[in-house]
């Protein structure tokens, strides 16, 4: 079934994609870009940000769905930039600008779509997080340690380590930091020590060149995963 290809229409253009392909990818494959904030090709899409919504169906029975999860169906009519889609996207951006006034990438993205200011009351001027959960999903799905997660719900919802304490599960890999679209997660590296989520990680220098490879805790995690001795990871990529 999954391998069957289906025909649908995106922005008036007939396209063919394998059945079940997310509309976002079906559009992309046909050179139609849909803006996203919480989507990442390495992560299971979950539809948090609602920026990628598209309009499906034919008037008057149309509706918005998030393109990152909605599967291509035979005969589906999709509009990625209808008036309704654009209005919704701009409103979502206005909401996010109020939520995360310090998010630079967000501001640029909003400006590109003609949203320069938000009409809503702004939160903490230093706030950056938009709760897209890419960090949480990366830690869980890619790194496989689940050191951080969503805590609480709406009024207090945030990304946190358990009990907001130093996480024992964290390996200091910094994947959450790198994937964050708004540079929210505090991270420093100084004198062989990496600090992230309030915990300090000793960095392991390369046995050959002396450059820092990664936190010891991360190399131990790799050793555990592979079954190789941890010392076998004490040589950096360049020196191997």
């Amino acid at each position: 079934m999954k391998n069957d290809s289906v025909s649908l229409t995106i922005d008036g253009k007939p396209v063919q994609v394998p059945a079940g392909t997310a509309l976002l990818l079906a559009a992309k494959a046909n050179n139609i870009d849909i803006p996203t904030l919480c989507y990442h090709p390495e992560l299971k899409p979950e539809g948090h940000c609602r920026l990628c919504v598209v309009e499906i169906g034919t008037a008057p029975r149309t509706r918005l769905v998030n393109s990152c999860t909605y599967p291509a169906e035979p005969g589906l009519v999709v509009q990625t930039a209808s008036a309704k889609v654009l209005a919704s996207r701009r409103m979502v951006l206005e909401l996010l600008l109020a939520q995360a006034p310090a998010g630079e990438h967000l501001k640029e993205m909003a400006a590109a779509m003609g949203v320069h200011e938000t009409r809503f009351k702004k939160g903490d001027p230093a706030a950056r997080c938009i709760l897209c959960a890419q960090c949480v999903r990366t830690c869980r799905e890619v790194v496989g340690v689940s050191a951080i997660s969503m805590a609480f719900r709406t009024p207090k919802k945030r990304v946190a380590t358990p009990f907001a304490e130093q996480s024992e599960a964290c390996i200091g890999c910094g994947s959450c930091v790198f994937i964050c679209p708004t540079n929210t997660i505090a991270y420093t590296e100084k004198d062989g020590i990496r600090t992230v989520w309030g915990r300090k990680f000793e960095l392991q220098p390369c046995n050959k060149c002396g450059n820092y490879i990664a936190p010891k805790a991360q190399l131990e995690h790799w050793a555990k995963l592979t079954g190789d001795p941890v010392e076998s990871f004490y040589v950096c990529k360049d020196c191997r």
Binding site: H48, R50, A98, Q99, L131, F152, R153, T154
Partner: peptide, 16 residues
């Protein structure tokens, strides 16, 4: 108070 907070329109919309 009851919004789970997963998606932007509901989380931020109910707030505003």
């Amino acid at each position: 108070d009851e919004s789970c907070g997963k998606c932007t329109p509901c989380r931020e919309g109910t707030k505003h």
